[in-house]
Computed example of a mutant assay.
Amino acid sequence: MPDANPAAMEFLLSRRSRPAKTLTGPAPDRAALMPILTAASRSPDHGKLEPWRFVVLERAALDRLAALAVTRGRAAGLEDDQVEKGRTQFANSPLCVAVVESPKPSPKVPALEQTYAVGGVCLALLNAALASGWGANWLTGWAAHDRAFLAEGLGLAPEERVAGFLHIGTETSAPPERPRPDLEAIVEWAEA
């Protein structure tokens, strides 16, 4: 049995995403980001397929994607407020890591299990950023599902998709606590 880690458990019991709109610079530089990405990559990975990859979006890339969000949002006929929300997700971000699901052919590991693994990577990345003292938020939004945006903006292959845009920076204000799940309503004990 591994040793208990009360500090890690306390972190997990009190962790709280930071709203992306409250994040500003500075953001982690490459040296500070690498341990966070390393921690995220230690997620469970049945078959050792690594069905994910990271695209780190720095300032110039974020500005390019903000402009592309306007172009693609208008081309898709989205309402102005949806276009603006897509634009500001990138324009206002100090740093963003796109977690890309990049499925691998496998006779043993179904595609759905690979998708679950990538979700685990997103949560691990979020928690690693928070544990490192950064504010962080996991978002998707319409741009994460727009094939033309993904191909042109991120160079994704047709079989790839974005599992999350993880925005990381310095928080300007702590969010209030929010209601948490009622365990009595969602836990069932199977004794036999």
Rank of each mutant, 00 (worst) to 15 (best):
V100D: 11
S106H: 08
R74Y: 14
G73C: 14
G155N: 05
L125P: 04
D63W: 02
R161Q: 15
A128H: 10
G25V: 11
H46R: 06
S93L: 03
M34Y: 06
L62C: 09
A75Q: 15
D3L: 11
S106L: 11
G77N: 13
R59K: 14
A61K: 09
R15A: 00
A40Y: 08
E188A: 05
G141Q: 07
E58S: 13
E84G: 14
A190C: 05
L37W: 05
V83F: 02
S43A: 15
A61M: 08
A190W: 10
R59I: 09
T24P: 01
E184H: 13
Y116H: 09
R87T: 10
G164R: 04
P110Y: 08
A190L: 08
P6C: 10
R147F: 01
A174W: 11
R72G: 10
L49R: 08
A163P: 00
N127F: 02
G120L: 07
L68R: 04
R74A: 09
S106R: 07
W189G: 02
P179E: 09
D182E: 02
N137Q: 04
A27I: 09
W138Q: 00
M9Q: 15
P105K: 07
T24R: 00
P26Y: 05
A39L: 15
F54Y: 11
R161V: 04
T172A: 07
V83K: 04
R59N: 04
L57E: 00
R72S: 12
K85Q: 14
G25A: 09
V70F: 09
S102E: 15
A131V: 09
R72K: 08
F90G: 12
W142I: 02
G133A: 03
A66R: 09
P181R: 13
T88Q: 13
T170G: 01
S102P: 08
R178H: 05
A128T: 03
L78P: 06
R180Q: 10
A148P: 01
V56H: 06
D81Y: 15
L33T: 12
C96M: 13
E113R: 15
P179I: 11
A76N: 15
G169Y: 01
R15V: 08
T24G: 11
A98P: 06
R59G: 06
R18V: 08
